[in-house]
Design a protein around this nucleic acid. Structure first.
Lengths: 203, 203
DNA sequence: ATACTAAGCTAGTAATTAATTACTTACTGG
DNA sequence: CCAGTAAGTAATTAATTACTAGCTTAGTAT
């Protein structure tokens, strides 16, 4: 009945720890993810966690990097899926919602870190991630204006804020409902309302 | 130099505690608002806090009730400010942003509670508050459809989600910027983008 | 005045948490 | 084969936390 006490390389364990944190965040507040809970989720003792990360802060940083890499990659890929900017926007929206559904802990971790006061390394990383995200978004939005597929007077900054807010709204809904179930379906409908505001004319 | 050690009624202290929590949440994560910090903010000892609330949970509940009363009252008032539903919508948006600017801790507290797993009394209260909010919103949105001031095919549920998301987006922005400064200005612009999506035609 | 009550203080408690220590054990290269 | 290293354990530590007990004191009604 005893687990055979597997030994793994630090590199592997680091990745496992990051995954464990993301998984734990899906079901509980990041604030009460303790090193003991992380260890338990990996079938390890609490002390062993510190063989692979010097501090808990270092764990959060690694998690932030993981989110950055994976979310931005998904968004980037989506933005390249078409040459038509409105299709790009929809693909990015879908990709982001998809990521949040696959990893419900991710948006919580981001929010939790931003809430922290001061200027930790983790917070700076999150800020960079969101800045990069917004940059991509603005690029696509500007492209829609240049091509004249949206109304001329559209403020792309505000349009970007509303885009991100729309996704934030889903995260909120899912926390209300207790799960991400059904969210993906509604996403298309909400995006349609958003798009109507951006395009600004009836077809 | 010593403070004259004021004595106040429990009723007053309860209100003070709630205000202290809301104020503290404006600058730090609700997760690390301790009873000691609350007491310090009131010029009281930590133990004295428990003369006025039996548990910390009771404090959170009182805070939730305070938010419920004040936010809903502001929204309600805004929704009655006009007979024109689109003007009502804008007033509600303004009122909500105004509330968030005046009490930046409030949205954090709501989010923090929703993140908690399980079904505490506080969480149920927050859910009720958001349900009521959404109810008012849907009522106004339906009214716009009946009067034909928005496009016929608009899905009011999705429009409500996007409305709430737009505000969520601002909370996010303000946490990124570190303050609510400048948010109120951008709010009008974002609402315009939103409104274009709801109305669905150029005037 | 005196006695009662409500609010405050000091000084604890038990539980929890990140981090450390001393020791053990599984791999791995020469 | 065996010596060194990397990964694991178990137990402990210092700090923090919600909460409590026992005593003090301000305000008030009789």
């Amino acid at each position: 009945m005893e687990s055979p006490r597997i030994r793994r390389s630090s590199e592997l364990r680091q990745a496992e720890i990051v995954q464990a944190v993301v998984a734990l965040a899906a079901e509980s507040s990041p604030a009460d993810i303790t090193t003991a809970r992380i260890a338990a989720a990996m079938n390890l003792t609490q002390g062993a966690v510190f063989r692979h990360f010097p501090t808990k802060e270092a764990i959060w940083l690694a998690v932030a990097e993981w989110i950055e890499e994976n979310l931005l990659a998904a968004i980037e890929e989506a933005s390249l899926s078409s040459s038509e900017p409105l299709a790009q926007l929809r693909a990015m929206f879908r990709a982001h919602i998809g990521f949040a559904v696959a990893h419900p802990g991710a948006p919580r971790l981001i929010f939790h870190e931003l809430q922290q006061p001061g200027d930790s390394a983790v917070k700076r990383r999150i800020r960079a991630l969101l800045g990069s995200y917004r940059g991509t978004l603005l690029q696509v939005l500007k492209c829609t204006k240049e091509r004249g597929v949206v109304r001329r007077e559209l403020n792309v900054e505000h349009a970007a804020t509303l885009f991100i807010g729309a996704i934030q709204g889903f995260v909120m809904q899912s926390m209300l409902a207790g799960s991400m179930r059904g969210v993906e379906g509604a996403a298309e409908g909400v995006f349609d309302v958003y798009l109507a505001g951006v395009v600004g004319r009836r077809e």
